[in-house]
Design a protein around this nucleic acid. Sequence first.
DNA 1: GAATAAAGTTGTCCTCGACAACCTTTTACC
DNA 2: GGTAAAAGGTTGTCGAGGACAACTTTATTC
Lengths: 151, 151
Amino acid sequence: MVTARTTGRTDLLQGLEQEVGVMIRRIRRVIGERARAVHPDLQSSSYLMLSWLEQHGPMRASAMAESFGIDKGAISRQVQHLMDLGLVDRAPDPEDGRATLVSASAVAEARLADVHGDRRRWLDEKLGDWSSDDLARLVDLLGRYNTALDS
Amino acid sequence: MVTARTTGRTDLLQGLEQEVGVMIRRIRRVIGERARAVHPDLQSSSYLMLSWLEQHGPMRASAMAESFGIDKGAISRQVQHLMDLGLVDRAPDPEDGRATLVSASAVAEARLADVHGDRRRWLDEKLGDWSSDDLARLVDLLGRYNTALDS
DNA sequence: GAATAAAGTTGTCCTCGACAACCTTTTACC
DNA sequence: GGTAAAAGGTTGTCGAGGACAACTTTATTC
């Protein structure tokens, strides 16, 4: 198992890649459960998008495609999915007739608030022994890592 | 944007979830490129599995399913894919007639060594400003996070 | 020695992103 | 001011890849 004891940078990258690989596979379950808690038919991927919308406010589909680094066609379908479930609202962008602004609906906000409560309980259960410092460090490092991959 | 300044634990979880979501989407591209560097027809997912095998030595399919937390059927197909490309070897498990031990082939080891060189150059380019400490911390925290998700 | 469990394989289904063609609106440029 | 190029979205098609379940083969258990 790769741990912090591993000193070489090459080995660290190796470890990073593997943890990411494991994470990609494992996280699906957790996100999936959370998505179903918001709405039984909500897809995992759309849940992440909805959560993003809730925190960042109304935005264009193209901006989301940019943020997530995925195809605009995929975004379009996700938004449609969220519309079907009544979890997002769409409004024409006053600044650009081609664009529409997507935002989390009131229902979605309420459901997400519930889920955040559940998540808090989950946190206490699974990550109870983590300090807020560790948590903050992980979020910070992940954010920097994501940014670094961008360029 | 959520940063380390965010203090509440609930907010931290929110940030973690979002960074993980972004990461999952973005990392696919990088892993995909790396996979193709090992073999043009190698799938991303199989690359991660191969890399795991190289570092952890021969293991059963069931052990991999356990490690990755995915279905044994998926593992079976991935191993088959790697066999088709000549990147893994299979040997009967002397301790259990039902099981087979899967290991990275000599060819795979050689290719992976090349790719590790490339990855090192990529590291210097993208994460050049990261300290080994930061890298080690990220790997460690990710590992602990993955473990926490398990239970 | 029959019942149960575990290791793999295979078939079917679903999620989800990539790529490309296309339509609409906006912007740029002459 | 009119045409060309670019940007925002939608939709069709495809492939990767995991979930679930049925099934075969070999171990284990009582």
